[in-house]
Design a protein around this nucleic acid. Structure first.
Lengths: 206, 206
DNA sequence: TTTGAAAACTTAACAGTGTTAAGTATATTT
DNA sequence: AAATATACTTAACACTGTTAAGTTTTCAAA
């Protein structure tokens, strides 16, 4: 009999509607305002029901974090069209920054907040989303190195450095640290700094 | 009569002992565990007394953030001994990273947490600590540019980029995002990435 | 068709958070 | 000594994540 199957389906539906509600609250009100109770209210269930479908709040935030990586991945797809690895790296940077600007909450969850990482630590799991994204970067960096564009000593160290530069620009901006600049300049500083970085990279290879 | 003077002194003493208690809790238990109640318990006053000396929690965190900048500033002093501006920039990076590693909680408060910035927004004040530190960087970058080491198009954009790279490396590390690497490599990744960055900078000028 | 167990969900509560209004001592002035 | 101003505390509000215990619903077996 298909009763168990139906129940499993129903479990799935509710689990997904919890995640949908969480996403809505998260995108509308932000990370801080995403509480178990606010999610529960949205789906019209009691707060404790959520714990029957997710171990704890971190598990929900981790699920949202994964969604963020899917979104970033979809934005990265166009990069496959760029044949030249050096141009691809540059374009990758633009896509990355654009993502961070368009979806600051997702970005924060993916690369700044500690909450989603807690789940990994507990379960001794690997950070698949991060690893595969970083692998994508490494792949192009290695190609650059092979073709003499970016003569790093170490692919991983070089890739991490590239990543860190973009992350730093986005994070400092998001956390209001561009207050060190005029208001006018603050707004464009990420673009300006990225341009300088590109010049730096251009000078590095060849 | 010196009664008012004495009272003012006493107010000062208590205000400072609140800050000392806050610092102790902050450094011992970390940002998340630094609550008004835990500070109050340490000085053996009721939690509400704290509000007679600080407007709110953000004001206390801002005060701690300022302390962090004093500490960073003291570490930066040795840089005055470095005559060559390019070497000074490099050394500055090392000092910055060392500070972030030695005092991750202070670093977080100074460059990542939104709490201390709230005070500025409310009072429409400038971020003196940040501005003067950034000015120090800009000064050396400008010298580099004048001497052909770092041919940036824009001092501020170039300085922001340098800052962002270091910040990104430290912040990704602190927030556990170096999980994209082997555990072994994770531990040394900031140093390795900084080395690659230095190579990049070397190739830029001259 | 009724009984009993299992599953799904809720209520109430714990322990914690920042913050405020109202009340109580203490110190100073009149 | 009485009135006032200052310093501090108590109690409470409105939240937070999370859990134990209780209730309702669903389903299977007698």
């Amino acid at each position: 009999m298909g009763i168990n199957e139906r129940k499993e389906r129903e479990r799935d539906v509710l689990q997904k509607s919890i995640l949908t509600a969480a996403r809505e609250v998260f995108l509308e009100k932000g990370f801080d305002q995403t509480s178990i109770r606010s999610i529960a209210q949205k789906i019209e269930y009691s707060p404790t029901t959520i714990y029957l479908y997710y171990k704890d709040k971190d598990a929900i935030l981790f699920a949202l974090h994964s969604e963020g990586f899917l979104l970033l991945g979809s934005k990265m797809e166009v990069l496959n069209l760029v044949e030249n690895p050096f141009e691809r790296i540059k374009a990758m940077g633009r896509v990355y920054i654009q993502f961070a600007m368009d979806h600051p909450d997702y970005y924060d969850l993916m690369f700044v907040q500690k909450s989603p990482m807690n789940k990994l630590d507990e379960d001794h799991e690997v950070w698949k989303e991060g690893v595969s994204t970083f692998d994508g970067l490494k792949y192009s960096v290695q190609q650059c190195m092979d073709q003499g564009y970016l003569p790093f000593a170490d692919v991983e160290a070089g890739s991490y450095m590239l990543w860190a530069t973009l992350h730093g620009m986005c994070n400092l901006y998001d956390r209001g640290r561009c207050k060190v600049l005029d208001e006018e300049k603050s707004e464009q500083i990420v673009d300006l700094a990225f341009t300088e970085f590109l010049k730096l990279l251009d000078a590095f290879g060849r």
